[in-house]
Write a protein that binds this DNA or RNA. Structure first.
Length: 598
RNA sequence: GCGCUCGUAGCUCAGCUGGAUAGAGCAUCGGACUUCGAAUCCGAGGGUCGGGAGUUCGAAUCUCUCCGAGCGCGCCA
């Protein structure tokens, strides 16, 4: 246990020590057999007066120990007092055990930050190399991406980064919906643009086809490749050709939009590939489920709520979703004999499982929320409960400009695209803002505010913190001339500083905040919530800015002390810790950490 | 009608999977620039955590029930 309690994670270290004490108490025979420590946690108390670390051990173990919380706390405290990391222990309230750590613990924590650099906070043991499939974006290849897609894209990408940092083996995946009726509509729309490119006057785009101008290049490309050959073919012949070309060009555009946000997927999985190329995986999956008794022919009651126009009561092929927690059984085949989207989706998720992924994360738009239960049901059925699926629903984005809604008319096909927004405000602003909100909360995205350089704009505020740290380094060379330029060398140099001299309460707060980073990574990764990193970085930057300004009124608190190179180096070590963690967290979010803001 | 998500300061939102006196920004009011970057900081006021009940040492957090908002509800994806 003591070996695993590496100092790279101070809170994990303390927790291990608390666990050890509780375990020892238990095995000394006073408790009934078996001890469950899973609910014992350590955390920083809200009120600093309560010490550095608090644990609820006595309270959550009171039943197992058959001892009153305060009495149990006394027993645990007595042993913790002997710990060489702990300066003092006291018991408060209903049985909290408050620990004050020795000052050396914080000095050591800072040295750890400096020593590990960009690896600090990495939680390799958490994921332990386990495979995770994160599927995100998966926008239909029928047009350019809008801002809502962008949010899912950024969220999925940051989550993938986060899980990698937490030690998982992550594959970033995009499900290309290239098989349904929508891509046929796309093909017909593109065919129209093709005729237009050949000089025909096509007039108004008919109802039901995609009117957007973005299909014009597809028409031109087809004209350039095929001349008028496609005109002479019947639709059944030209449609697959036009469809393939249109999808390819749309995907190229989408990948370009994603690249502008530094998003790159490892796998683009084609829905069509499930049914083409030899084996029909959808049919195979349906038969697999039929063999388990989870597929049958039957009738469904008519849908409630909004009446369905052309409702027709008929027998159909159904998946027994109700056996796995869904509300109704779900159809797998359409009346025209084709598979439903759901049927393909089951096969797709089974395919992921068969590729060795037992941890699945899907990132969906809010309008797909009603779809979650049936997919969860399907995954249970198809993997016999051996896979976990976490569906992250990303809420919609309200685009504003200085508080006023930006008009979007979808009907004309003329809407604000993701690319336009990225071009206007930059990828860093888009990425950070989309992560500076919980995924299931509606996001107001104000185009004017995100390029503002003020505290109101968290992107700027955090980046400025990083730049400001570098500004200190630049100025510090007058006192510490041999301060290295390169980050790794600088960190190594500063790790030798007398960091014990950092004793100001606000400095210790900063050290505590830095020590919290690995814990924040772990919690955010476990919850699949990258926004926690964004908020952590904001808090860290805030404390750093505050300490900077404090030096204005109280010169002895400045980072650079002209006649004391030793103290300056200690303070620079603190600044380096802050800069390093800001850079690390920003990297997880995929946001650039600039050395200066000018 | 059913399901999912949400409801926290005037506004926009956090709240570390059940912890101690519920936090931040904006807005309001009052302060700090012969400066390591004032692009920043400090302080003040502001709350029945939508209402009610339950679970337990302890609830904004878990359960139930109302109220309100958004999304969805065979053969679209």
């Amino acid at each position: 246990m003591a070996d695993q309690a590496s100092p790279q994670h101070l809170f994990a270290d303390v927790l291990a020590r608390v666990h050890a004490v509780c375990g020892a108490l238990a095995t000394e025979g006073r408790w009934s057999a078996g001890i469950d420590l899973s609910r014992v946690v350590v955390e920083p108390p809200r009120d600093p007066a309560h010490g550095d670390v608090a644990t609820n051990a006595a309270m959550v173990l009171t039943r197992q120990a058959k001892t009153k919380p305060r009495d149990l706390a006394e027993q645990i405290a007595a042993r913790l007092r002997a710990d060489d990391l702990i300066a003092s222990v006291d018991i408060a309230g209903p049985g909290f055990i408050n620990l004050t750590l020795k000052a050396s613990a914080w000095s050591e924590a800072l040295r750890t930050v400096l020593r590990e650099g960009s690896s600090y906070g990495r939680r390799s043991a958490m994921g332990a190399g386990e495979k995770v499939n994160v599927e995100y974006v998966s926008a239909n290849p029928t047009g350019p991406m809008h801002v809502g897609h962008g949010r899912g894209a950024v969220f999925g990408d940051a989550l993938a980064n986060l899980l990698i940092f937490a030690g998982y083996d992550v594959v970033r995946e995009y499900y290309v919906n290239d098989a349904g009726a929508q891509v046929d509509v796309l093909a017909r729309s593109a065919h129209l643009r093709y005729r237009e490119a050949l000089g025909e006057n096509i007039g108004e785009i008919p109802e039901g086809l995609y009117p957007g101008e973005y299909l014009k290049p597809v028409g031109q490309a087809l004209a350039a490749t095929y001349g008028d050959k496609l005109l002479k073919m019947p639709e059944a012949e030209w449609l697959p050709i036009v469809r393939a070309k249109a999808i390819a060009m749309m995907m190229e555009e989408i990948e370009g939009d994603l690249a502008a946000l530094n998003i790159r997927h490892d796998v683009f999985f084609s829905e069509r590939s499930l049914i083409e190329g030899g084996t029909d995986q959808v049919a195979a999956t349906i038969e697999f489920l039929r063999g388990k008794g989870d597929v049958y022919e039957g009738r469904l009651p008519p849908p409630k709520g909004a009446p369905v126009e052309d409702y027709e009561d008929r027998e159909q092929t159904l998946f027994r979703a109700t056996a796995y927690g869904d509300d109704v059984d779900r159809p797998l085949k359409k009346s025209d004999g084709g598979y439903t989207y759901f049927a393909s989706d089951i096969a797709y998720h089974k395919n992921k499982f068969d590729r060795g992924f037992h941890n699945l994360v899907d990132v969906w738009g809010a309008d797909h929320g009603g779809y979650i239960k049936r997919v969860e049901a399907a995954i249970k059925a198809v993997t016999s409960g051996k896979a976990t699926l976490d569906v992250k629903v990303v809420q919609l984005v309200k685009l504003l400009r200085s508080g006023e809604p930006v008009k979007m008319s979808k009907r004309s096909g003329d809407f604000v695209t993701l690319r336009e927004v990225v071009d206007e405000v930059g990828k860093d602003a888009v990425r950070f803002m989309m992560l500076y909100r919980k995924n299931d909360a509606v996001l107001d995205f104000d185009l004017a505010k995100v390029i503002e350089q003020s505290r109101e704009n968290p992107v700027f505020y955090v980046q400025y913190g990083h730049a400001r740290g570098h500004s200190v380094f630049r100025n510090a060379r007058e006192v510490v001339p041999d301060l290295p330029e390169e980050a790794g060398a600088r960190a190594a140099f500063l790790a030798e500083a007398a960091v014990e001299r950092l004793t100001d309460p606000a400095e210790l707060d900063l050290l505590r905040r830095l020590a919290l980073y690995p814990r924040t990574i772990e919690a955010a990764a476990a919850a699949h919530e990258p926004h926690r990193i964004a908020f952590y970085l904001y808090d860290l930057a805030s404390e750093f800015h505050a300490q900077w300004t404090r030096g204005r009124d109280l010169p002895y608190l400045r980072f650079i002390i002209n006649n004391d190179a030793g103290m300056t180096k200690a303070r620079l070590a603190l600044v380096q810790g802050v800069v390093s963690v800001l850079a690390s967290g920003l990297a997880v979010l995929g946001v650039h950490a600039p050395d200066e803001m000018r």
